[in-house]
Design a binder for these strands. Structure first.
Length: 269
DNA sequence: ATGTCGGTCCATGACCGA
């Protein structure tokens, strides 16, 4: 069961790019972020024609997540629990019924968190967009703890908007005061890992030079000025099933690319 | 280099978010 996460930066503007990739790569399950579309606007038929079931959690203009699956989906839920007042569409989960296992998959688009406000002491304040990010990450940890406790094969994958370590940025010094790399963001990410999750890519690959995002600006792709912010976190029962993992870097060099590329895992499920 | 995209809207470019 090949499961990929992909921030496509607008499903309508990226439809041909998405369809070409789906045909070429044939993932069984796709967790999409930043569809930037309401549910009714999602190009459902074009994706269904390639053999996918489609479940969306859309929002007008911004955010929006979706699950595409060649395998049956059950028990779909939308929205990250823990704050009824949160109206941003950043979380969707479902159970994928595989040949040998059922896998709970959670697709997430973690808040960017910029701009950050700093206090007189120079320390970041947990206010505004950065406060929303940190609060969202606490709710993520709460949901993650439930998944760990379930003792089921499960994963949480998506655009985490967190650079976990210096080696995950071509120029870490450029991100020092950015919400993607501030200590509190990385600490919150590590708290989620410490619940018992395996970060799929780093379970297999070490060292610098592995990125999942290159900004459209300043010739970032041409200079390989990237960051690794799209991650797949596996419960122990899912990690035991992992047979392969990768980042589809080449997608960034194609026609009309997203600024992110797919990150994928293969599970023996 | 305030650099590039995608989306929205009382649009024909300004703004917002990333």
């Amino acid at each position: 069961m090949k499961i990929a996460t992909f921030n496509i930066n607008g499903v309508k503007a990226r439809l041909q790019t998405l369809l070409d990739w789906l045909e070429r790569d044939a993932p069984d399950v796709v967790l999409l972020q930043e569809i930037k579309s309401v549910d009714e606007g999602f190009p459902r038929e074009a994706v269904e024609d390639l053999g996918y079931n489609v479940e969306t959690h859309g929002q007008k203009g911004f955010n929006g997540v979706a699950i595409l699956s060649k395998l049956p989906l059950e028990d779909v839920t939308r929205g990250l629990p823990g704050d009824e007042s949160d109206e941003q569409a950043r979380w969707i989960e479902a159970t994928v019924v595989g040949n040998t296992h059922a896998v709970r998959v959670c697709g997430l688009y973690l808040p960017n968190g910029n701009p950050v406000e700093f206090g007189a002491d120079g320390k970041p304040l947990a206010t505004g967009k950065y406060g929303y990010k940190l609060g969202w990450m606490q709710r993520l940890a709460d949901r993650g703890a439930e998944l760990i406790a379930s003792e089921m094969p499960a994963l949480m994958a998506g655009d985490y908007n967190v650079i976990p370590q210096a080696e995950d940025a071509a120029r870490p010094e450029a991100w020092e005061n950015d919400a993607l790399y501030l200590y509190e963001s990385r600490a919150a990410f590590r708290r989620v890992l410490n619940l018992g999750f395996t970060e799929a890519f780093r379970a297999r690959v070490r060292g610098p030079g592995h990125y999942s995002f290159w900004d459209y600006q300043a010739r970032s792709w041409e200079r390989d000025n990237g960051i690794r912010i799209d991650h797949v976190l596996l419960t122990p029962q899912a990690a035991d099933l992992m047979t392969d993992v990768g980042i589809s870097r080449d997608e960034r060099g194609r026609e009309k690319p997203s600024d992110h590329v797919p990150v994928w895992v293969d599970l023996a499920a």
